[in-house]
Amino acid sequence: MQVKKADGSDYEPNTISAFQRSIQRYLEEKSNLSILKDKEFDSSRTAIAAKRKSLVQSGKGNKPHATKFLTYEDEEALFSSGQFRDHNPEVLQRTLWWYMSLHIGFHARDERHKLC
C-alpha cells in the first residue's frame, strides 16, 4: 500500500499492475509460484486492488496522454498557421501523413512505424 516513486509521488494504477505482472514473469522462470492465482498471495492482490481503486478515485489513471480527436476548427487552424500545406517538403510530408493516417485509420503503434 506504500509503493511510491523516488520523488514521493504515486505511481499510475496501471504501473502498479505492471510491477505485479513483472514479478509474476520472474517467478514463472524461477519457480512455480503464482502471485496472480495462488491462495498465499490473496492479501497482496487485495492490497494492490485497493491501492489501484484509491488512486483512480483520487484522479490518477485518467490517461492524460490519450489521443484526442481534432475538430474541424482545429484542422483549419493547422492549415491557416502553415503547419499543414505544401510550401516546403517537411510540411508537405506532415500534411500527407495527416491525410493518410486520417483515411487509413491507424490503430496501433506498429502501423504508424510501418508507414514511416
Rank of each mutant, 00 (worst) to 15 (best):
L27D: 00
L27W: 01
L27N: 02
L27Q: 02
E28F: 05
E28P: 00
E29S: 13
E29Y: 11
E29G: 09
E29P: 03
E29M: 11
K30Y: 11
K30P: 03
S31Y: 07
S31C: 14
S31R: 10
S31M: 10
N32L: 07
N32S: 12
L33D: 14
L33S: 10
L33I: 14
L33Y: 12
L33E: 13
S34P: 04
S34V: 07
S34G: 04
I35H: 03
I35S: 01
I35L: 09
I35D: 04
I35N: 02
L36M: 13
L36N: 08
L36T: 07
L36R: 08
K37T: 14
K37Q: 14
K37N: 13
K37E: 14
D38Y: 06
D38V: 08
D38T: 09
D38W: 07
K39E: 11
K39P: 06
E40R: 15
E40W: 09
E40N: 15
E40T: 14
F41C: 07
F41L: 10
D42Q: 08
D42W: 00
D42G: 03
S43E: 15
S43P: 07
S44N: 12
S44Y: 05
S44L: 11
S44H: 04
S44G: 09
R45E: 04
R45Q: 07
T46W: 08
T46A: 09
T46L: 09
T46K: 14
A47N: 10
A47D: 11
I48C: 11
I48D: 02
I48L: 12
A49E: 10
A49M: 04
A49W: 02
A50W: 00
A50H: 03
A50L: 06
A50K: 05
A50P: 01
K51N: 08
K51G: 05
R52H: 00
R52L: 04
R52T: 01
K53W: 02
K53I: 03
S54V: 02
S54G: 05
S54I: 01
L55S: 02
L55Y: 01
V56C: 01
G59R: 04
G59E: 01
G59W: 03
K60N: 10
G61V: 02
G61E: 03
G61R: 01
G61K: 04
G61W: 00
N62A: 12
N62F: 15
N62I: 15
N62D: 15
N62P: 03
